[in-house]
Amino acid sequence: MTTPAANKESAAPGPYGSPWLRLAFRPFYLGAALLAAVIVPLWVAVFLGAINWQPTPPPLLWHAHEMLFGFAIAVIVGFLMTAGKSWTGLATPRGPALGWLFALWLSARVASLVAPYAVFAVLDLALLPLVGLIFLRLLVRSRNWRNVPLALILWLLTLVNLSFHLSVNGMIDLNPMRSLHAALGFVVIIECVMAGRVVPFFTTSALPKLKIVALPWLDRVALAATVIGMALWVTDGHSGLTSAALTLAFALNLVRQWRWHPLATLGRPILWILHAAHLWLILGLGLLALAQAGLVSASLGVHALGVGATGGLILGMMTRTARGHTGRPLTAEAPEMAVYVLIMLAALLRVLLPLLAPSLYVSGLVASAAAWSAAFLIYLWQYTPWLLSARADGKDG
């Protein structure tokens, strides 16, 4: 005799549809990894004059824009549209609906290379407001008010992207790089919020003997200092005030991370990559503070945040969540360890080598691009078969 629970379980629909369109992390992680592997060495080749090629926007702006609104946004969309299902208990886009969202992202990336600027801009501006609306609807229906600010950030990023396209075409009097710095600021804010949630949680889950006492006030103050510091930097505020705010953000985030026991994770690569990437976020804030006094180039802080923090956190989360959502153990094997080492090497070569040995800038740039690209190529080699096929445990998703 079966119980009602057993009847309900047996009546539940099994996996259906194309596996790679069952959850958003599948197509968007693949697209982001492929884009990252290709565009960084392409940009370096253009920058060094090895390739005579002109993308739709000017090359420097194209590089920075695609790293943010192409690469980082793809991972953010894939993560939020996947996590949103767990957070709300409601269905997120799958099948054809998910396919159209991914096609919209992909078409904008292609358009940035070959299409007239107007076509690129329209396609590029379409995705984020759609995803923001879908995500907000899920949160409101489930009364998940805690994550509503993340949906609002998606719309703020849309406005930032619009300002970028308008400024590139001379329709508003604004340096396009200012818009890209604002986008980086929003990405850093998302990273601060999500790191504060997942890094201590993952750490204590894997190392149950550790005790991390939550201090919500510290998280809030560290986030506030980061928001204020990045906002002053983006708006070109008073250099002394900006430096003070960024230094405070640096210190508070460092204290916060120390309380997460980073040294205890050294034997767990799938954990230490998240701690190492968050340390790059802290270093990036510190370098931006030093840049206000003219002690270092602001570019070093930007790339500490872009390569070390964003690249490291993205690969740490792309490996962990992809393993979990494809029904595989949450462990790092040889490919993952290679990926983690390479992305950290890319950051060291791009940020610390120019700082310590400026004469090696070009060599470091080329080596950093190679390490970055290799990290994402290894990810694609390991994860593409998993992301295109059904879960190993036979479950849906």
Rank of each mutant, 00 (worst) to 15 (best):
L30W: 01
L30K: 00
G31S: 06
G31K: 04
G31M: 05
G31F: 03
G31D: 11
A32N: 08
A32F: 02
A32P: 03
A33V: 12
A33H: 04
A33Y: 01
A33S: 03
L34T: 13
L35C: 11
L35W: 09
L35S: 08
A36C: 04
A36I: 08
A36S: 07
A36M: 05
A36Q: 07
A37G: 01
A37N: 02
A37V: 06
V38W: 02
V38Q: 02
V38A: 01
I39R: 05
V40L: 09
V40H: 00
V40N: 00
P41S: 00
P41W: 05
P41D: 07
L42M: 13
W43H: 05
W43T: 11
V44L: 03
V44N: 04
V44A: 03
A45E: 14
A45Q: 13
A45P: 07
V46M: 12
F47G: 08
L48S: 09
G49Q: 11
G49Y: 08
G49R: 08
A50L: 15
A50W: 14
A50Y: 09
A50K: 13
A50T: 13
A50E: 15
I51A: 09
I51H: 01
I51F: 02
N52G: 10
N52W: 04
N52H: 10
W53T: 14
W53G: 05
W53S: 06
W53I: 14
W53F: 09
Q54G: 03
Q54I: 10
Q54P: 06
Q54K: 09
P55M: 01
P55G: 03
T56F: 00
T56V: 10
P57M: 06
P57Q: 06
P57V: 11
P58L: 08
P58G: 08
P58R: 12
P58F: 02
P58H: 11
P58M: 07
P59S: 14
P59K: 06
L60D: 15
L60M: 15
L60Q: 13
L60W: 11
L60N: 13
L61S: 12
L61M: 08
W62K: 04
H63I: 07
A64M: 15
A64K: 13
A64L: 15
A64R: 15
A64I: 15
H65G: 10
H65A: 09
H65R: 06
H65L: 09
H65T: 09
E66T: 13
E66D: 14
E66Q: 09
M67W: 08
M67S: 03
M67C: 07
M67E: 12
L68C: 01
L68M: 08
L68W: 06
F69S: 14
F69W: 10
G70S: 04
G70N: 12
G70M: 12
G70I: 13
F71Y: 14
F71N: 09
F71K: 06
F71I: 12
